[in-house]
Structure formats: C-alpha cells, structure tokens
C-alpha cells in the first residue's frame, strides 16, 4: 500500500510544532502501525534526518507506553485496541493518515509524539495503594472475596495508564483513569480501611494536576483500549460523596 502520512513534529516543549508530510509506499497490511513508523524512521535516519520520537515498549497492549492520535482518534480507529496492536490492514491504499500526540494541559509534549504523563504517577502516589508494608500480610486465603467482586475489581484494574481517556475528552478529564483505581480497590476488602482517604486524596491530586472536570460525555470509554467502563466513574462519584459526608 501507499499512504500519505502527516506527522506532528515538535522539537521540544517550547517549539510550536507542525504537521509534516511523509509519503510512504510498500506498506504491508500485516505490519503493525508502529512497525510502519519503524520503517519510516529507518529511512529518515538513512537520509540523516532526526527520527520521529514516539513512546512504545511492550507492543502488545499492556504497558501503556504507546499513545498517538490517529486521524483524531486516540489509539486509532479500532475499539479496545492500543496503537501498538493496530495493524495496517485497517487502512486502504492511498489513505491519508494524520498522526498527532496526546493533547492535554496535564500531559505536556516532550518531543514529536512523546508526552509527559507523570501526573498519573503522582495521582497514584496520592492514594492509589493499600498501605501494607512488606511482611505485614495475613495468610492469603484468610481474605475471602466473592468471585463476582474480584472479577469486577480485575475489570477496573486492567487500566494500563495510557491516558487515552484524557486525550479523548474535550475537558481533558482524568476521571476514567482515577475511577478505575478507586473502583479496583473499592471492590476489595483490602481497600476498605483507607477507602475515604484514598478517594479524597486522589481526586485532590487530579485537580491539582490541571485535568478538567467530567461532563459525562463518554468519549473516554469509547477511546479506552482496555474498555474500562463509565460505571467506574459513577462508583467514584459515590465513593467521593460517602467520603465527603463523613
């Protein structure tokens, strides 16, 4: 296939950046989207041009490194798919594809398609944990957890921290990400003792980082590669209410 790529190039946080045209041919439908960028980079380096920077690592949809707005869609056109799992068979010969970084105030651009998502780490540091030191644990089967709750917790815990929810939201809200962690721990008895403190501290940190508020549009759920559900946001709101009524 032949494709016309338009890729965001930005030298650094203070550069204004622009879309640059890169026509590519010989794209095989079996290539992944990132493999196509690899091949383009090989060629750029060969021509002495700086390679296009983008985040990636596992290339199997689990580490949360990859990002990219592809034709305006975070992680591209497929549902439940991270950019690294997107294959070129999804596109047609002659297509124009616009590739841009996540756009959100709380995720400043580092270079080209790479952004700084440390805000998510700081939100977890504010309360996304159970305070149990190494060695303090009780025997594992002493904590019985109904299968249903543990499955629900696992559904929420599947979040990979990629930030597509933020990138897809017109308010750049991080509610889906935060709710996934709050819900994961709220479904489990281990999360109980710190439940109220957790939600208060995580939400306070989220606000401090400059993420916007949630207006229930649901774009986040549609963009999420792990199909984290909006019901987690409802749970987060309930948890917050309970914490505030304390």
């Amino acid at each position: 296939m032949k494709l016309n790529l338009k890729i965001w190039r930005q030298k650094g946080p203070n550069d204004s950046g622009k879309l640059v045209d890169y026509p590519v041919d010989d794209v095989s439908p079996d290539m992944s989207f990132l493999e196509m960028l690899d091949i383009l980079n090989l060629k750029l380096v060969h021509d002495g041009v700086e390679a296009i920077e983008f985040d990636h690592d596992c290339r199997e949809g689990i580490c949360g490194s990859c990002s990219l707005n592809i034709n305006g869609n975070p992680h591209g056109p497929d549902t439940g798919t991270a950019t690294c799992q997107l294959h070129m068979r999804r596109f047609k010969d002659g297509d124009t594809i616009v590739v841009e970084p996540w756009r959100a105030k709380a995720f400043p651009i580092i270079k080209d398609l790479t952004t700084d998502r440390k805000a998510f780490d700081r939100i977890i540091a504010a309360g996304g944990f159970v305070s149990v030191n190494t060695g303090n644990a009780v025997e594992a089967n002493a904590i019985l957890i109904p299968k249903h709750n543990s499955e629900k917790a696992m559904d929420a815990a599947a979040c990979i921290g990629c930030g597509a929810c933020v990138a897809s939201c017109k308010n750049s809200s991080a509610m889906l990400f935060v709710s996934a962690k709050v819900a994961h721990l709220a479904y489990l008895p281990q999360g109980n003792p710190e439940r109220k403190m957790r939600v208060r501290n995580m939400v306070a940190q989220m606000d401090e980082e400059g993420f916007g508020s949630c207006s229930n549009t649901g774009a986040c759920e549609a963009a999420c590669p792990k199909e984290i559900k909006l019901e987690n946001i409802a749970m987060l709101n309930r948890e917050m209410l309970k914490a505030l009524c304390d």
Binding site: V130, V132, A140, L144, L188
Partner: peptide, 22 residues
C-alpha cells in the same frame, strides 16, 4: 508462600473460586 500473601494484601485481584478462595 509469603509472596502470595503480600500480593493479596496489596489488592492484587487474583482469580478466585465461587467460595471466595484463590
């Protein structure tokens, strides 16, 4: 043995049986 205890205490959602055990 200690590892599983520690991970469960942290909230790792291991697969479970209907009776609630691992």
């Amino acid at each position: 043995l200690n590892i599983i205890d520690q991970c469960v205490a942290q909230g790792v959602p291991f697969a479970r049986e209907y009776g609630g055990t691992l």
